[in-house]
Design a protein around this nucleic acid. Structure first.
Length: 676
DNA sequence: GAGCATTTAAACACAG
DNA sequence: GCTGTGTTTAAATGCT
């Protein structure tokens, strides 16, 4: 142990002092240190213990390096402002990225996902390549461990055998070690080239500080001396690099990786000051001069004064305290590593999900692109609805925009998971969009049928659903078995269905209460348990004709929830026209979400039809097939005689077989009269 | 600019 | 007194 610490100190010292070390030098040094390790083995330690010990050593070395680097930074920070500038990057623990078998960190993954530069196929390929590389690494590391164990055993045997001349055997072992080192280096090269190719393909944006990442996994299975050497090389390379070109990043993959004549150099140009934990860090002087403040803005684990390490949420007043917290609480240990892996899996799951969604979206867009010109040809109520469904962007861009909606396959696909403005809304069925103050609220790329998927999305992503509170409340009530909910149950529905509403409870709960009180469509019913809230569908329906009455162009106000329902609406209407609402029936009997969609479309169409009838054909009220789909009434209170006459008295028709009820509704209900 | 819908915040009352 | 619920008012915003 004393020897270890001595080596560490020495190596660490040389890491700073030593300038440029070649790869061969590294191999020689590693070899020497392997020998030196082997010359003083502890007889009591078994092979397994040795392997374990090596792992512990690696862990400890990493920790000590971190500490030493920090200390050096603090010391040199007083002397050298240049070093000081890099402190933020350095204070992030090296540990996790070093110890986790990831070629690309979760943060990189997230970056990739956020950038949305990858097609599903590319992502798949990327994942497969990553997995293959990880596998190779593990194999190599296992092999290396075995080699180490063999070496230790051999040396032990030699000692027990009477101290025979061990040079030849040691040389043999050393040769094996050398061969393995070369293998390792080849692997590193492969990784570099792999990343380079990814970068060239535009699949991965590697910032200079990230160049170290490919090497980190390899460090996992390395013994301390190798780590020392790596860091030595790293430091020297970095120093040389810095002095050589201040205007360039510390690592230019495009130039260094192609150099096969200096493999170790290629593989070892790693920046120790590159931030870890996925933290991006650019080492151009300009970036280095950036303040902590800016750094804090960009740190993916820090925001709004809170540590965003999964499951942490510790409050950090400033970035400095955050860094301290990060180093203290999320330093290199099993827990952090495990959490990191978990996060990796989460990202991978999301990635797979994204790939699936994108494929589906692509197929849908292709499909819609072919058929989208059809409904536009005939000016029917359906088309009115269709025109309603156009996003503002699309309609402004091209008045004949139906075939040119963002679903056009030839146009770049707007990423789905990017923010509130791009969230598909169809999953929320019959809820109206919340008015967004976001200026580009119409800039929505919507896939038309990912209902359950969007539900899942809103459940997991803290994205504000683009629906009004009233619509959400109504949806919550309608989804309940008895079509009535207590306030608390409504709250629960919000938090259950939307991750967004798991925050700022006071605000949105107040809004919910406010909406319940404000809108006549929400009726409070005294129950045995207390008060429950129901929806007066009639009142609810009254709202929209107001909204869209008068000017057909106002129908656009229905906005996004309809935007990409156009093909489905077309199908719905056609189907209903032909078969007396079979689509609704079918949908309702299937996936509840689809049922809700049918409900939504029914009501949307209904609203549009109301509008159409009230404005254009008062002479034929309530005889549209649309109106056969008329509202579910959930009010439990005694209804007016008039209402009892009409379909609105059909309590919770959604729970019944839709066919007969709707026929009856259709017969009895002159919707416009009621509404008007 | 008017009118409307919506969101947000706040104050207040009431009941448990 | 605290909390949850319900009502009401007001201001701000976005849209047509």
């Amino acid at each position: 142990m004393m020897q270890e610490s001595g080596i560490e100190t020495k190596s660490n010292g040389s890491a700073i002092q030593n300038g440029a070390s070649s790869g061969n030098h590294l191999l020689e040094c590693s070899l020497r240190e392997v020998r030196s390790n082997g010359e003083t083995p502890s007889v009591e330690i078994g092979a397994a213990d040795l392997a374990h010990l090596q792992q512990q050593q690696a862990l400890q070395v990493a920790r000590q390096f971190l500490l030493q680097q920090q200390q050096q930074q603090q010391v040199s920070g007083l002397k050298s402002p240049k070093r000081n500038d890099k402190q933020p990057a350095l204070q992030v623990p090296v540990s996790v990225a070093m110890m986790t078998p990831q070629v690309i960190t979760p943060q990189q993954m997230q970056q990739i996902l956020q950038q949305q530069v990858l097609t599903p196929q590319q992502l798949q390929v990327l994942l497969q390549q990553q997995q293959a590389l990880m596998l190779q690494q593990q194999q190599l590391q296992e092999f290396y461990k075995k080699q180490q164990e063999q070496l230790q055993l051999q040396l032990l045997q030699q000692q027990h055998a009477g101290k025979q001349p061990k040079e030849p055997q040691q040389q043999q072992v050393a040769t094996q070690q050398l061969a393995f080192q070369q293998q390792l280096l080849q692997m590193q090269q492969l990784q570099q080239q792999h990343l380079l190719s990814l970068q060239r393909q535009g699949l991965l944006t590697i910032q200079p500080g990230q160049a170290a990442l490919p090497l980190q996994p390899l460090a996992q299975g390395m013994i301390p001396t190798e780590l020392q050497q790596l860091w030595k090389e790293v430091t020297s390379s970095h120093t040389a690099e810095e002095t050589a070109s201040n205007n360039h990043s510390s690592l230019d993959l495009s130039t260094t990786c192609v150099s096969s004549s200096a493999p170790s150099k290629t593989s070892l140009i790693i920046n120790p000051h590159a931030s870890t934990n996925g933290q991006l860090s650019v080492h151009t002087p300009k970036r280095e001069s950036l303040s902590h403040e800016e750094h804090s803005h960009s740190h993916p684990l820090y925001g709004h004064g809170v540590c965003k390490w999964p499951g942490c949420e510790a409050v950090c007043e400033d970035f400095q305290s955050f860094l301290k917290h990060l180093n203290n609480e999320h330093a290199l240990d099993d827990r952090s590593t495990a959490q990191c892996r978990v996060q990796m899996q989460v990202v991978q799951q999301l990635e797979l999900q994204l790939a699936k969604d994108k494929e589906r979206l692509q197929a849908m867009m292709t499909h819609l692109h072919v058929k989208s010109t059809e409904p536009k040809a005939t000016p029917q109520p359906l088309n009115l609805v269709s025109s309603v469904t156009l996003s503002k962007t699309a309609s402004e861009a091209s008045p004949q925009s139906l075939p040119h909606t963002p679903t056009t396959p030839t146009t770049p696909i707007t990423p789905v998971i990017q923010g509130p403005s791009v969230i598909t809304t169809t999953s929320m069925h019959n809820v109206e969009p919340i008015r967004r103050r976001c200026p580009n609220k119409y800039n929505v790329a919507i896939s038309s049928a990912d209902l359950a998927q969007n539900q899942e999305f809103y459940k997991n992503a803290e994205v504000r659903p683009p629906f009004t509170y009233a619509s959400l409340i109504r949806q919550a009530i309608l989804e309940s078995p008895e079509k009535q909910l207590t306030l608390n149950e409504i709250y629960n529905w919000f938090t259950r269905m939307f991750a967004y509403f798991r925050r700022n409870a006071a605000t949105w709960k107040n809004a919910v209460r406010h909406n319940l009180s404000l809108h006549k469509c929400f009726v409070r019913v005294e129950n045995v348990k207390g008060a429950v809230w129901t929806v007066d569908e009639l009142e609810f329906q009254k709202r929209r004709p107001q909204k869209i009455s008068g000017n057909p162009s106002l129908i656009k106000n229905i906005q996004t929830s309809h935007t990409y329902c156009t093909p489905l609406n077309a199908a719905l209407q056609a189907s209903m026209a032909d078969n007396s609402i079979p689509l609704y029936t079918t949908a309702s009997m299937g996936n509840p979400t689809l049922g809700n969609l049918a409900n939504a479309m029914r009501e949307d169409l209904n609203g549009a039809m109301e509008h159409t009838n009230s404005n254009e054909s008062d002479s034929s009220p309530g005889r549209s097939p649309m109106q056969a789909m008329h509202p579910v009434h959930v009010k439990e209170e005694p209804l007016d005689p008039d209402e009892n006459e009409g379909p609105l008295s059909l309590v919770t028709t959604a729970n019944h077989s839709p066919d007969f009820d709707h026929d009856r509704d259709y017969e009895d209900e002159p919707v416009n009269e009621d509404i008007e």
